[in-house]
Amino acid sequence: MNASTDIELDPAVKSRPDYPPVAIDARASHQVFIAEDNEQTSLTALSEQCQTGEKLSIVADAESLPVSLAELPLSTALYVSGSEGYLWDIHNRLTEMGFGVDKIHLLAPASAARRLFCTHCYTTMEGVAHTPYTCTGCGRPLLVRDHFSRILGAYVGVQINAEDPADLPATESLDESASDVKEAC
């Protein structure tokens, strides 16, 4: 990592999920493809590859997931594609319904934009692409950390200049930091 910047993202943060490549689970009796919108091309490609089981495709958010999903058997595999926050909203809804975690496959999100949770005022912000980021709730400049909450589907933001209000580092794109992290690994 580049040590000259003030913001260092720790490559060893364990809470940050990784998204390994997803393959079709050939033993599943039902194959459910869940997309945030109609632009999830890798999900479409995966679903086209799928030759086994009963297929079902859904475009919905976590609140509007059809309740009838809960009638599917335990041997159902689910594939989810969308922004990172969306993936975890769906993941949490599905586990609540009773699907086993190793049947829920999350496709790597296409965008590096993050859902951010302010640890000071608990505001949640979507599509955060740079750090520091001004909290839309309390106005504090937040350092966007790599620590991730799966329950909130969000990264944690903490005030960056709490000790010295004058100390405000330059803005950095999270996209770049993300690739930094990958190189460092």
Partner: peptide, 10 residues
Amino acid sequence: AMELGLPSSN
């Protein structure tokens, strides 16, 4: 369980 496609997490 594997034959039936059940989640090993369960």
